[in-house]
């Protein structure tokens, strides 16, 4: 058993011989020990597993690792600055209390950054609410997530 796969995770090239059934999220969590990417539903509904693949948000629970040969993967661990300073979106989530238990948070932050990349820095409440349709949070009622995304988007100008 085993298939070789080589991908770039948070800027680091990784080659491994894996079970071909291994999901991208399992590769990230189990093989790379990057446990910030979470599994909330394993059916691509809740979005806790959201990562960037070549710059686009992807739900890593519903894709096989071997599909991503040569791809650039960015996880929540890969978006802060070199000295650990938070990305503007991460900082906005803290400032606006956009998280409680923290479990959906990494996926939520990744989706929010993706939203800004796709729709720009000036986002209406409705655009944010609709844009986060693929991410479920059970703690916050989304009220402060919406505020955080608005603030994070504004602070991402020029980043």
């Amino acid at each position: 058993m085993g298939t070789s796969v080589s991908l770039i995770i948070n800027g680091k090239t990784v080659t491994a011989n894996i079970d071909p059934r291994m999901l991208l999220v399992q590769f990230i969590r189990e093989h790379m020990q990057l446990t910030g990417t979470h599994i909330g539903c394993d059916t691509a509904q809740c979005g806790a597993c959201t990562v960037f693949v070549n710059g686009n948000a992807v739900k890593s629970c519903s894709a096989l690792a071997v599909q991503f040969e040569g791809a650039q993967i960015t996880t929540i661990e890969g978006i802060a600055g070199a000295n650990g300073e938070m990305h503007p979106m991460q900082a906005a989530f803290k400032e606006c209390h956009g998280l409680q238990c923290g479990f959906c948070t990494p996926g939520m932050v990744m989706s929010a950054i993706d939203l800004v990349k796709r729709h720009g820095n000036s986002l209406s409440e409705q655009a944010i609410r609709e844009g986060l349709d693929g991410n479920i949070c059970r703690c916050t009622g989304y009220h402060n997530i919406v505020k955080a995304v608005q603030q994070g988007a504004a602070n991402m100008k020029g980043v």
């Binding site: 990057l34 599994i39 996880t75 650990g84 938070m86 991460q90 989530f93 803290k94 923290g102």
Partner: peptide, 21 residues
């Protein structure tokens, strides 16, 4: 007061049961 726990949750540093190996 902004939460002391948030940095770890926001940067992937939370440690939930399934994260323990």
């Amino acid at each position: 007061v902004r939460r002391k726990e948030d940095y770890r949750f926001l940067t992937g540093g939370g440690k939930y049961t399934d994260d323990v190996t």
